[in-house]
Design a protein around this nucleic acid. Sequence first.
RNA 1: GGCGCUAUCGUCUAGGGGUUAGGACGGAAGAUUCUCAAUCUUCAAACCCGGGUUCGAUUCCCGGUAGCGCUACCA
Length: 504
Amino acid sequence: MTSRPTVRVRFAPSPTGLLHVGNARTALFNWLFARQEKGANILRIEDTDVERSEARHETQLIEDLRWLGMDWDEGPDVGGNLGPYRQSDRMEIYHRYAEQLLDEHKAYLCFCTAEELERERKHAAEQHLPQVYSGKCRALDPGEGKRRRAGGEPAAIRLKIPEHPIRFHDIVRGDVTFESESVSDPIIVRSSGMPVYNYVVVVDDALMKITHVIRGDDHLSNTPKQVALYEALGFAVPEFAHLSTILGPDRERLSKRHGATSIAQFREMGILPEALVNYLALLGWAPTGGTRETFTLKELIKEFSLERVTPSPAIFDFEKLYWLNRHYLKSADQQRVATLSLPYFQAARLVSENPGADEQEWLNKIIGLLVPYVNRLDEISEKSNFLFRYDAQTAIAKEDNRPLLQSEAGQKVVAAFAKKVQASSNGFSAESFKSIINEVKNETGTKGKDLFHPVRIVVTGSHSGPDFDRVIPLIETGSRLVLPQHVMSVRERVSAFQSAWGRP
RNA sequence: GGCGCUAUCGUCUAGGGGUUAGGACGGAAGAUUCUCAAUCUUCAAACCCGGGUUCGAUUCCCGGUAGCGCUACCA
């Protein structure tokens, strides 16, 4: 058996904002690959952009990744032998290697000003030529350069791109080639002394012994520069896997204006992590056979394959995410769903801050009843409006209720039903309510929709909704609880409806 | 402008030189339920265009077109 080096991958986000679905998908594919290969997953924080990086974003990032079910073997919070894992703590390393490249004449000092470079670019554009740096400062004598720099002249450090074409292998796209002429000598350290992303990423990946660089395809065009850097530094070039972009319905890169895009937002919406992970996995990857749709993380580790990742960009489809969410909601543990739902009721001030046992039990039943009706848990309090926000006026005024209420049969049913309810002195159970319905049925000679629609409107405000058998006990129990918002009993509803009906 | 990547139902995708081009979301119809949702059944829906290679291309090659990305002393 030939021993292969252990797989080491990394996810390297910038802590400049919330974790976005695109990055989350990159994190997921890295993690799946690492776990499948029994390799190491590394978290590295790319905070060289001091202006935009914030510690709270790093904390949030870690929280979001863990929420999704991911973990890592090395990282700023868990340590590791090849750290530090924050770029801001690695400046010395970057400078050391930059000076080394300079000494070996693989890089050179560049004294060109921003204006000069701008002029060059303009000129290139006019001539329909690739916009690459002219290489003017390449010709400078290195000793002379160092003297000028020592004298205080601002100088950036540029890498010499080799004359030969740059090729590399990408697991999802195959072999990729860039002609040398189309690749500019990249700046690796700014004249301010701050190293540049394309450079530090190579130093870090090499030093952290990353074997597979799995990242977004917005980095594909940067890869030749990075490959040249690996070679100049004398490091082995890793395998690459560039993941396609996630787009919005308008085929533009998915962004805030398409709706929710951050993991935190999806969590707040009441999307289950297993649903999101499953959806993300299916965005750009399909299992052998291509017919299976639902996977747990464990199953994904088994089935996932980088070779089967599709190179074409994918449009984010909220409907399919919702379908998966409904799927997982249905089979999720009842208690867990209840716990996750409670905050939505509390935010709407429908239930107590610290519900007692009776209230909790009642609420759990409501949640159990309504979960099959929602795409996301944050819809659940609105779905319970028939309980908490019954209003006779609006029920009567509602467009799709009116024809029913005004029909002869409808009026007959409402009248008979109201009379029966008012005549009964006690509250209702599912059974006693059913017998009233039966009496109304016999008296009015109506059945089916003609019978149930008007009754539903009177009791719940809407002609459609969950089973009466489950709704009636919830209404009656609720009416006896002390809640921030009183839940009207069936009798109360009927009288309210009657008096509202009385004055047109 | 230059360079790169991409191209199968509306969407996510499977497939692959000869197939009734498969699955899923969404849509439509039906069954079921008092209604709605759920569930089940059925249906509609696709190989970007043009050349080549080949007995035969949706599949392989080339070109076009379109979309996206990079083209920074951003990451």
